[in-house]
């Protein structure tokens, strides 16, 4: 670490910097066709199956990642007034993951087609990312 940065941290009484003020519109994610192409790749469903497999997979509690959901290390803590994000679990399917972004009643909605070839899921995910960005949770 540079001396000037170290001195600044000492004056601030901090151990490191944390990035908090890098806002942008997450709808811009649609500018990255690679992400959309990846979401349409059926091989990503392997992740879904690995989570939902039966007795041959470890219980969610036994996995190290069960102790630290991804939301724990987001750079900016969620605002108290913000509605709580759905708790991810190891049993979520990728399809369900995208489905729940459709709205509050999405969980009761019939299952949409698989993500492969589904542009709707991509838009839903991007919409959710945009909402997270507007709430300062990303």
């Amino acid at each position: 670490m540079r001396v000037d940065a170290s001195n600044l941290l000492n004056r601030l009484g901090r151990h490191d910097f944390s990035y908090k003020e890098f806002e942008d519109r997450f709808t811009e994610l649609e500018l990255w066709p690679m992400l959309e192409a990846l979401l349409k790749d059926p091989r990503l469903l392997e992740l879904d199956g690995a989570a939902a497999s039966g007795p041959t997979s470890p219980s969610p509690e036994s996995l190290p990642h069960a102790h630290a959901p991804a939301a724990e290390f987001t750079a900016t803590p969620p605002r108290p007034a913000a509605p709580p994000a759905p708790e991810p679990s190891a049993t979520d399917s990728i399809g369900a993951l995208f489905r729940r972004y459709e709205g509050p009643n999405a969980a009761a909605a019939p299952a949409p087609p698989a993500p492969a070839g589904s542009g709707q899921d991509v838009r839903a995910m991007l919409r959710h990312l945009s909402e997270l960005g507007s709430r300062g949770e990303i």
Binding site: L29, L38, P88, A90, L97, L129, G133
Partner: peptide
Amino acid sequence: AFVRELMGPRLI
């Protein structure tokens, strides 16, 4: 953000 959404709790 994409990886975080894709991986869910697998991203530790």
